[in-house]
């Protein structure tokens, strides 16, 4: 492998096909809890030098088709590439799920609906 290929953040260079190894993979936080899936990647395209992946855009993939595959900016959720610790059968992040701003809907659902039903804070196992 040559230096032209994007470098993996934690290992030596490895060729990654965005379509096959990145897009639509599940994204897990530090503890293995699902965050969302990879909806898109943000690229930095300088005039000189190679293209770099700067951020991973996360999404459920449920509504993006209604928006023509482009989530409006204010609902777009993304994490910097530097948070990625491993690319395997899922994309592993080195941060906690709660530090990534969950969507307003999830927060509302958790605090106002599910959280108000008795027993919602106990795992049934």
């Amino acid at each position: 492998m040559t230096d032209d290929h994007p470098l993996h953040p934690t290992r030596d260079g490895r060729l990654v096909d965005a379509n096959i190894h990145l897009l639509d993979r599940a994204v897990l936080d530090r503890d293995g809890v699902p965050v969302l899936a990879v909806d898109d990647v943000e690229l930095d395209w300088p005039d000189d030098g190679p293209v770099r992946v700067t951020r991973l855009v996360l999404g459920s993939g449920l509504t993006s088709r209604f928006f023509g595959a482009h989530q409006p900016g204010h609902v777009r959720l993304s994490v910097p590439w530097s948070d990625v610790t491993d690319l395997g059968d899922a994309v592993h992040l080195g941060v906690d799920r709660d530090s990534i701003d969950a969507t307003w809907f999830e927060r509302w659902l958790r605090d106002r609906v599910i959280g108000r039903i008795p027993g919602s804070r106990h795992a049934s196992g």
Binding site: A37, S60, E106, L109, I114, S120, R121, A123
Partner: peptide
């Protein structure tokens, strides 16, 4: 599909979309 936390083993507040 959506990448939400899922499962009965989680506390419902930790998997709100799943339980809904």
């Amino acid at each position: 599909y959506a990448g939400w936390p899922w499962g009965k083993r989680l506390r419902p507040v930790h998997a709100p979309q799943f339980h809904l």
